[in-house]
Simulated assay, not measured.
Amino acid sequence: MSFTPEQNNAICLEFFETAWNTGVVREDLLSEDAVDHSLVGGKSKAEPGSGSFKHIIGMFHHAMPDIHITLLDQIYTGDKVVHRWSLTGTDTGGVMGMPPSGKTLTFTGTTTVRMADGKIAERWANVDELGLLQQLGVVPPPPGAE
Score class of each variant (00 low, 15 high):
1 M>Y: 06
1 M>D: 03
1 M>N: 06
2 S>Q: 06
4 T>F: 02
5 P>A: 04
5 P>Y: 03
7 Q>R: 09
7 Q>Y: 07
7 Q>T: 15
8 N>F: 06
11 I>A: 06
12 C>H: 01
12 C>G: 08
16 F>Q: 07
16 F>L: 09
17 E>G: 08
18 T>Y: 01
20 W>Y: 14
20 W>L: 10
21 N>C: 12
22 T>M: 02
24 V>F: 03
26 R>Y: 08
26 R>G: 10
26 R>L: 15
27 E>S: 10
28 D>S: 13
28 D>V: 15
30 L>I: 12
32 E>Q: 07
33 D>Y: 03
35 V>Y: 01
36 D>K: 00
37 H>V: 15
38 S>R: 08
39 L>W: 13
39 L>M: 14
40 V>R: 06
42 G>Y: 14
43 K>S: 14
43 K>N: 12
43 K>F: 15
44 S>Q: 14
45 K>Q: 13
45 K>D: 11
46 A>G: 15
46 A>V: 12
49 G>N: 02
49 G>A: 07
50 S>N: 01
51 G>P: 01
51 G>L: 04
53 F>N: 03
54 K>L: 05
55 H>P: 00
56 I>K: 01
58 G>I: 11
59 M>D: 13
61 H>E: 04
64 M>T: 15
65 P>G: 12
65 P>I: 14
66 D>Y: 13
67 I>L: 10
67 I>Q: 04
67 I>H: 05
69 I>M: 13
70 T>Y: 00
71 L>W: 08
72 L>V: 14
75 I>C: 06
76 Y>V: 14
81 V>N: 00
82 V>S: 07
82 V>L: 10
82 V>R: 00
84 R>D: 04
85 W>Q: 02
85 W>F: 15
85 W>G: 04
87 L>M: 09
89 G>N: 05
91 D>I: 10
92 T>M: 05
94 G>A: 05
96 M>W: 12
100 P>Q: 09
101 S>I: 13
102 G>Y: 08
104 T>H: 03
105 L>H: 06
107 F>W: 15
110 T>Y: 03
110 T>L: 13
110 T>H: 06
111 T>N: 11
112 T>A: 11
112 T>V: 15
112 T>W: 09
112 T>H: 04
115 M>Q: 07
119 K>T: 13
119 K>A: 14
119 K>C: 13
120 I>F: 04
121 A>T: 08
122 E>R: 01
124 W>K: 03
127 V>G: 00
128 D>W: 09
128 D>K: 02
128 D>S: 05
129 E>A: 12
129 E>G: 10
131 G>M: 03
131 G>K: 01
132 L>F: 11
135 Q>T: 11
137 G>L: 04
139 V>P: 00
142 P>N: 06
143 P>M: 04
146 E>N: 07
